[in-house]
Simulated assay, not measured.
Amino acid sequence: MNATILFLPAHVDQPWRWLRVENDAVTGRGEGAPEAGADPTIAIAPADAVTLHWSSLPARSPAQAQAAARIVIAEASAAPLDGLHVAVGDEAEDERPIGVVANGRMRDWLGTLASLGIDPAVILPAPLLLPAPAEGYVRAELGGQSVVRGRTSGFADEARITDLVTGGSSPETLGRDAVEAAIVANVAQPLLNLRQGPFARRKRRAIDWPLIRRLAVLAGMILLVTLAIDLTRIARYAMAADAAEAQADALAREGLPRGADQGDAGRLLTERLSRLRGPGAGFSATVAALTSATREVDGTEVIAVAFEPTGELRATIAASGEAQANQLIDRLREAGFAVAASTFQSDGQRVRGDVTVALP
């Protein structure tokens, strides 16, 4: 693989160092921040900033494996877990590596790299660049820091700590060629990436223009189909309206006498109905209103009626008193008629008078 290996300095005053890997070989090295290129950048965390553990974790989902790893770390760490970032390594191993680093340290690394225009694909603890020995320990200098690795351990090489961990046995110092071969192998398949959970690298989604074009075509087809459905519905409604109008015209013509069906059937039928019922509201409607008002007012009755050619209905009304007569007149006016009344005269214990009822 092709990649840039960037060693994060253990201290602020230390220089940045980098290696260039191309075609499974180290082809360049230097100090300072490298220029960002098309090849991925793999950042190497200093050994004294990351605590490594190994544990047999079940092959579960990443979230479940990380939860199990936090339980393991809670038993082995004196620091509160709230301030620690826990990352789980490759599940293909019998014992999986677990990296523990302070959240603040991770934020500082990523912030500094971002200011340099670098977004590393992997942050790998420095000890995991070395090969895992079959037995004992190996030592090498990585990015200006001496690092020791055992089969299930990895740490910065400090005299007291190294003697304590190795039991006094001296680690084997690897040569330059062996170190570079191990670097090439371990960056090709990183055993542990600290960029997990809240520090995972954000995926940049490229715009799929062919997909967008297909979606645009589908949207256009949907709009055309919708428009065709609306036009078909409008045409059906128009045809139904024309059929209903033709049926109404035919029914209207059936109500006309023979020889009188020339012209607008609706207008001719209205004129005939007007002649049959009489002018104004017609005899039936006017008498019905007068009869309804008489039923509503107790003590009133209709003595005589006469329907005039002008559409007026003249009626003689008898009532128990003048108050009842006035109530009858009010009922007719509320029904929408104009009412003219004569003076009601006393007729024994009742009063009698004439009213004229017509449309206003």
Rank of each mutant, 00 (worst) to 15 (best):
N2I: 02
L8R: 00
V12T: 13
V12I: 12
D13F: 12
Q14H: 13
P15T: 06
D24V: 06
A45C: 06
A49P: 00
P58F: 06
R60M: 09
S61C: 02
A63D: 13
A74T: 06
E75I: 02
A79M: 10
D82F: 08
L84H: 07
V86K: 03
E93V: 07
T112A: 11
L116T: 02
I123M: 11
P125M: 07
P131A: 15
A132N: 01
L142D: 02
S146Q: 12
V148M: 04
V148Y: 04
T152Q: 15
A156F: 05
D163Y: 00
G168C: 10
R176M: 10
V179Q: 07
N186L: 04
Q189V: 10
P190D: 09
P190E: 11
L191W: 07
L191T: 15
R202G: 14
R204G: 12
L218W: 09
I222W: 06
I222M: 13
V225N: 06
A240Y: 06
A246G: 00
R253Y: 01
P257A: 08
R258D: 15
A260N: 07
G266K: 11
R272P: 01
L276C: 07
G278M: 08
G282V: 05
S284C: 00
V287E: 14
L290P: 02
T291M: 08
A306N: 15
R314L: 13
S320P: 00
G321L: 03
R333A: 10
F337H: 07
A340G: 05
S346G: 13
R350W: 09
V351H: 02
V357T: 08
L359I: 13
